[in-house]
Write a protein that binds this DNA or RNA. Structure first.
Lengths: 390, 390
DNA sequence: AAATAAAATGCAATCGTTTGCAATCTTGTA
DNA sequence: TACAAGATTGCAAACGATTGCATTTTATTT
């Protein structure tokens, strides 16, 4: 670089064009050797030496200098820009590797106005700490991580406490991330609405049947609830219990499906029991216990709104020596890893988190590309195990 | 800005110093009004109008203009720099809020060479997918998230697949993050060593007794193993089984403690059974099953290397109608949320992940500040429940 | 009122990339 | 040999904040 322009300048001063051209060719070809020579002979040998020997971190300009090309070329080469000759590109990539160089993302993000980061927000209700221990949610996060990485995006993980609910500003306008994936609709859509209004590109995991102006990806919860109840009824259960919170968007759908199944079996809604609980095992355990104490065993089948809830229920039943599945059959929801390891192994409605994660990422990418997007429903599937075997 | 310098330039051309000064004072005080006037009268009214009315995102310079101050002042005000008068600071912060402004992190990161991001890496072994479903690991991640946020840091979540093991380059030199927290030592320390060699500031969750030149935070696993075995022996168990992988750093410590307890009870190592398994419930279930099939029930107490392993073991035992705890007692490790909900409720060695997470973050901060740091051991505690009640 | 110290603000360079455009090099063809 | 077209490369201006230093304002003292 220095070499080139210095020579060029020198030559043009004297107006000896052809000579200058020859010089340039010469210099260009042997730029690197020349450079070594040059720095060794000079007193001010700061720059190159430093970047070679010391920790003074190498910059793109430094790398370019080492390679005897301009920063533009270096930049393009490292970014696989087809403008650059293949040989040059390889040479630079190799050099970069050798020197442990990698592009400064802060700089490139500033320049390109793109971060290649997606913020994943666990949108918990106020009970905070508790539900974060739900293996299902964390499975979703893990799958999102995979799906994002597969597309070259990084994942910034956040809980809803961060950023005081100012998601659009905090994440998007501040250029911390390009888009948001919000896991869980929560009980109010306030924060999400605000973010959407402030032009934050986002996708939500939740109830895809909800009418919103942002895309929601989620399972067919209604069908799930239906299949669960249907399974119980078809194995001979007479009195069902729904264990979950009908206020919560997704659970409400499951509850609808549950009721539909009853109707299809000519059973009155009033003959079913609904115990409204938070979506944690402890809540399930406590409330089911209490319900049995107060009302005795008035049911022979339970549709639990999640596997964790089912786990809590199982414990309560076992402690009272109520046999599962012979006395009470039970169906969970989610199919977390350990559902199979419960005793008895839990029949449950499996949510395809892997596919869901991919869909969410895909949808977000489309949204970022300015394409129109819409909510999507993910298929679910009943997995039959022992907790409903009669 | 424009106003000031234009006037200044103009005046200095004509060498009318005092007049220029007066002008400046005047303009400065009424900068905002003047600006409005000016833009309304001119044909090219681009900048201000745009930033006011349209989405053309507001920049610090724009905000400063609106407030009639320089960008320096605006920057300092928003960063709570004490150089700025309190009134000015408040005014600017309010203005920023009103206009939904937030500083561009890409830019400030570039300038300050600091990201305020910590990358958390799940350092899984090749079995990948599987262990990420371990609720314990994810609990650690969740606690790290809390601890980081509490210090104003954000969390970039990554699995070990990302970055092809080039952690130092990928995360640190590229300025994606300031430091690394690596969850799990894995079976080889190769990647970690490489990162350390490349000057990546990092902290590891693992076995703190390991001799390394980087800090490791972890539980007192040896004591944990000891307490677990001790508990079983003291309730009358005669033949113990260790269910876990003695190759794995942390598990090895637990195994040491286990053996120590045997010794203290004058029991020969050979009288104990070791079943080496991966740290998943499925592996535990499978292998324990197989072991019983091959060798019959030769033990009356199990030290499981994790709660998930204990869960797998429980299932195997239950399926064979072996009663827990009367025939076989069992102790887990970790105290995951649902340990209490197993049936019987699991006696286990609790790891204090919250404290651990805080320590890791604190240690990393110290490391980033250039202070010397060292490994730290976190206290553990035996939580007694029903699986050891005899 | 002037001089001085202290508080508050502004100027302008800088961080390390990317990219439109201009300049140069290569190649094929007349 | 010259020339145009196409392939490569370089120049230099952004991107939007931070900060040392210079300058102005305000408060304090003589």
């Amino acid at each position: 670089m220095l070499t080139h322009s210095a020579v060029f300048f020198y030559c043009s001063l004297f107006n000896i064009g052809t000579f200058a051209n020859d010089c340039k060719l010469f210099f260009q070809t042997f730029a690197f050797f020349l450079f070594e020579l040059q720095t060794k002979n000079q007193t001010s040998r700061t720059e190159l030496e430093l970047s070679l020997s010391q920790e003074s971190k190498l910059t793109l300009a430094g790398l370019a200098k080492l390679a005897g090309v301009s920063t533009s070329t270096a930049s393009r080469a490292l970014n696989d820009n087809p403008l650059i000759k293949e040989e040059t590109r390889h040479r630079l990539q190799k050099l970069a590797q050798e020197h442990n160089f990698s592009l400064n993302r802060a700089a490139s993000r500033l320049r390109t106005q793109k971060t290649n980061v997606v913020a994943v927000i666990l949108n918990l209700t106020d009970s905070t700490e508790q539900s974060i221990s739900d293996p299902f949610l964390l499975k979703v996060v893990a799958d999102l991580n995979q799906a994002l990485n597969a597309r070259g995006y990084e994942m910034l993980l956040s809980n809803s406490l961060m950023a005081k609910g100012e998601w659009a500003n905090y994440f998007i306008h501040s250029q911390r991330a390009d888009g948001l994936i919000i896991v869980g609709q929560g009980k109010s859509s306030e924060k999400i609405d605000a973010a959407v209004k402030n032009a934050a590109p986002l996708v939500v995991w939740g109830d895809p049947t909800a009418k919103t102006d942002y895309p929601i990806i989620g399972s067919d919860n209604r069908l799930g609830g239906y299949l669960a109840a249907q399974k119980l009824l078809s194995t001979g259960c007479q009195k069902l219990m729904f264990l979950g919170d009908p206020e919560h968007a997704e659970m409400a759908q499951r509850y609808q499906g549950f009721k539909q199944a009853l109707k299809d079996h000519q059973i009155s809604e009033d003959d079913a029991i609904t115990v409204a609980i938070d979506i944690t095992s402890h809540a399930a355990y406590r409330q089911l216990n209490q319900h049995i104490v107060s009302n005795g065993l008035q049911f022979d089948g339970i549709v639990a709104s999640s596997d964790m809830v089912a786990l809590g229920a199982l414990k309560a039943l076992k402690e009272r020596y109520i046999n599962v599945p012979s006395e009470v059959a039970i169906v969970g929801f989610d199919d977390i890893t350990m559902a199979e390891l419960f005793h008895p192994a839990l029949t449950t409605v499996a949510q395809n988190t892997k596919l869901a994660a991919e869909q969410m990422v895909e949808t977000l990418m489309a949204r970022l590309a300015g394409e129109p997007v819409k909510s999507k429903m993910i298929d679910i599937e009943l997995v039959e195990r022992h907790s409903t075997a009669r």
